[in-house]
Design a protein around this nucleic acid. Sequence first.
DNA 1: ACAAACTCTATAAACTTAGTAGAGTATTGC
DNA 2: GCAATACTCTACTAAGTTTATAGAGTTTGT
Lengths: 145, 145
Amino acid sequence: MLSKKAKYAMLALVHLAKHQDEGPILISRIADDEHIPQKFLEAILLDLKKDGVLASKKGKGGGYYLIKEPNEVNMADVMRLFDGAIALLPCVTYKYYERCEECKDEETCGIRETFLEVRNETVERLKSATIAHIIATEDSLSKKK
Amino acid sequence: MLSKKAKYAMLALVHLAKHQDEGPILISRIADDEHIPQKFLEAILLDLKKDGVLASKKGKGGGYYLIKEPNEVNMADVMRLFDGAIALLPCVTYKYYERCEECKDEETCGIRETFLEVRNETVERLKSATIAHIIATEDSLSKKK
DNA sequence: ACAAACTCTATAAACTTAGTAGAGTATTGC
DNA sequence: GCAATACTCTACTAAGTTTATAGAGTTTGT
């Protein structure tokens, strides 16, 4: 399962993209609008800033804003930032690779092969899910309704 | 991430399928061969028994054995049994459905839509990953090597 | 100077995971 | 019938993670 952190981060990013033309957005506003505990959100936005997705301005008129284009920020990266690996087994991750202690032969492990395929599909799908794509999806879902 | 329970369950099931012709298999043998803590494995096999995948025999000559065909047992079911939902968001699961507290409108949520697609792909892939399929994969990987 | 607003550190409750201990129950072989 | 074998059940626990909260600190604009 996605952590609350990752989920909140995604909501905040979509919010920031939607209000990109309004200058810096207050943490308190995002927290209110998206129903996220403010103090918790502060830490999340800070992480996104350290990761180079957002920037902030202090003092009056301050707030957070996107510094990447909405089509350059994808859910795979967000998920990795907050929840670590996307794969369901440590032996099929790239960045977080870890051998399974109980594994006899990784190269011929059928379970590994299965979860490698799942991982690849998921990563591909999440990479194509950019903020821009999510907003477009929401527009299209709204029209149908 | 997959829990150890689910991983161990998969290893045990593959083991049982491979030795299906030898009658009941001892917990201790599976634990030794697959490098799984025995006491932990006992609980896992019991769960699989309650779920109707395995049966057991007590006393001398006893042990566990498959009562479903290897092509009828898939990793989606195993994962659901031990780890709950396969989906990454509670709002896109069928059996474990839960509304996201912070969600404004589920029907038009772009994040939900993304993770619904991921879920569907993953479930499909894991359903096709039966024990029989995993063993066949291992055979084919061994030959390549 | 002062208020606004982000930043940083510390702490904690609740929950989950992974595993252990030990007594209990059923079955087989002799 | 009895001893050995092997699964079953209940209870417990250590460690780690998640989801926060509290409060002091720092920077900026006017």
